[in-house]
Design a protein around this nucleic acid. Structure first.
Lengths: 344, 344
DNA sequence: TGTTAGCACTCAGGTCAAACGAGTGCTAAC
DNA sequence: GTTAGCACTCGTTTGACCTGAGTGCTAACA
């Protein structure tokens, strides 16, 4: 048991050192820097055991050891200790939410920049509005040109979307306003996912002209609500890591970061709200086999779900990254509180 | 005079070859591949002259010559011959405008992807709406929550913007509609850049409550109109060029592509509508000293200005890039034509 | 039985010199 | 004006060698 504990400590020391230096760790390094009571020979024996157990790999005979993915898994699950952030870092993260920036895009962009700046990894920030959970509050049709109008939808939680719509015939602005009022009343409380169907049902009992308009509207509003925004920051950070000094590797990785679909699938961690760490192959993407991805989701006041992904080498500073993401969570709730104050 | 012509041909051959291979070009290569009538010794003499004239550099004594920036300038200004695009490429570019995609963001994203795919360089697509040239058509205030409304502005050319506004007191929706109608009438034909002032002027003669509302509106609408969208595609393409096999260089370049301000200033070519080529130092940015940037602007039907930038190594395939940008222009005008048809 | 010192062995990386070859510049002949 | 020839330059490749960090094993020690 005592030995087990020592093995743990040694493994942890190796991982810590490797995360810092990216260089294979030798027994002497550990004996000098971390376990001064033990000789390098003893460490060597332990390291040999750890290799047998699958926690360490050796790149070649005389090059020290590097942690395996299994080791990182253990590290993340059991060895992690919170790393306090500097005041500057906390302030930087807070500042993303500070100004009452109305545009989500703006928050996302700033957040992506701040997170990549603070962690030196690449940050992806995705915002989406799961329409299943949204409830219709009201709508308005705004005339633009002869036959063009804009359909504004407002949900109970206060989210707004606009969709341009092409009508079959020109309609007087006053009529549009009346129709808007009528529909707002009829549809109030309807789930956004049922909106289309509800519109068609209303269309049934209405005169020809009105029915046509409603059908046009129903046809339009399709999947406009849950295509959210996706912003990536700090791509160039990846190139500073020695693991990507091979340009070909870097190129592969970068091209993943340019493929929206791949990024989205990476950030979609099946609705869990907790922080998720995926190490190497656990990401499920060949191109990311020596990357780790840490994702976290936050539900915003207005029903939006913000998902953040931090992408770096497998020897990521997991402790620090987790602290950063926790700080983001804290800042978001602070934001809510301050909004409450504002309302009073 | 005949010699001048020959020098030109040789210089052109050198540039062509270097663009293709990225390797210093030797006299024998030219004599074999391009000017079979002339011996390598003759070419050597000419090359020596060209170096004296500043058109060629030699990395070291025995390594062939590479074109100088001055040579590229001459190449772009005088030697360029149009390179026909493959049918696939043309189709790919056309497809960006094909579907009647309402969202500008979508067009930009697709365009950036298509251009970087076709050219293998990095493409930046910026869309902005120069408010000086826009004329107000009408507006509407849409209620969202108690004291929150959305201000919708429509210009004569059909562009639409929405700005969330926080009111000082709740206002009945019907009143909002009346106010919208009133303001639309009063402001019709007003230049967007004068809008704020015009609102304040109207506020003068109005009763307290109305005046307050107008002032709130005037305060809001500030510079929301000309912050356009900016999309970049094909960053990873850059890493395939041998000139960026040095990771440090690549990192510098990438980080420019992540700095919105720098990109914007790169794409802002002072309102010229023509295609602009900037070679190396001409970009005015140290980080881009061995890159070239080709920009082109297109005015869209609704007053938007689309600016496209293609960024690659100085030994860019200028001919091809220009053909691609011309094709983009053609496709945009096709789009307008088809919209006209649709209207009939 | 666990720990340690000692030693032979391994292997990537660095250094150095030699050979190579692509390319130039110059000269003399055509 | 053009060309063949030749000496010269200089970065690159190749291979031999050395170095040093690190391991594994064994024998002695507590």
């Amino acid at each position: 048991m005592e030995i087990l504990d020592r093995k743990y400590r040694i493994l942890q020391a190796i991982i810590d050192d490797y995360i810092l230096t990216a260089l294979p760790v030798g027994s002497r390094t550990i004996s000098r820097k971390y376990e001064q009571k033990l000789s390098s020979a003893t460490i060597r024996n332990e390291m040999s055991d750890l290799e047998d157990l699958g926690y360490l790999d050796s790149p070649h005979t005389s090059a020290g050891r590097i942690p395996s993915n299994k080791a990182y898994r253990l590290y993340v699950d059991q060895m992690l200790q919170p790393i306090p952030l500097s005041l500057e870092d906390v302030a930087y993260i807070r500042s993303c939410f500070d100004q009452r920036s109305r545009q989500i895009e703006q928050i996302s962009t700033r957040l992506a920049r701040a997170l990549s700046g603070v962690t030196h990894y690449t940050a992806a920030v995705m915002t989406r509005m799961p329409r299943e959970e949204q409830i219709f509050s009201h709508m308005q049709l705004v005339p633009v040109a002869d036959r063009r109008v804009i359909l504004i939808l407002v949900t109970e939680s206060g989210a707004v979307t606009q969709t341009p719509v092409e009508l079959e015939a020109a309609i007087d602005p006053d009529v549009l306003y009346t129709v808007s009022k009528f529909l707002s009343q009829r549809l109030a409380g309807c789930a956004m996912s049922r909106l289309q169907q509800a519109l068609l049902e209303i269309a049934e009992g209405e005169p020809e002209e009105m029915s046509k308009l409603l059908k046009t509207l129903a046809a339009q509003d399709d999947d406009n609500m849950d295509t959210g925004s996706l912003v990536v920051g700090g791509r160039s950070n990846l190139l500073s890591f020695p693991e990507y000094s091979d340009v070909e590797k870097a190129r592969n990785l970068l091209s993943v970061l340019e493929t929206r679909d791949k990024l989205v699938s990476l950030l979609n961690t099946h609705g869990e709200m907790e922080i998720t760490v995926r190490i190497g192959p656990e990401t499920g993407m060949e191109e990311l086999k020596d990357c780790s991805v840490v994702t976290a989701s936050y539900r915003m006041r207005d029903g939006r779900v913000n998902t953040i992904g931090l992408i770096g080498p497998t020897r990521m500073q997991y402790g620090r990254v987790l602290s950063v993401l926790n700080q983001v969570g804290r800042s978001i709730y602070e934001l809510f509180d301050s909004q409450d104050d504002e309302q009073k």
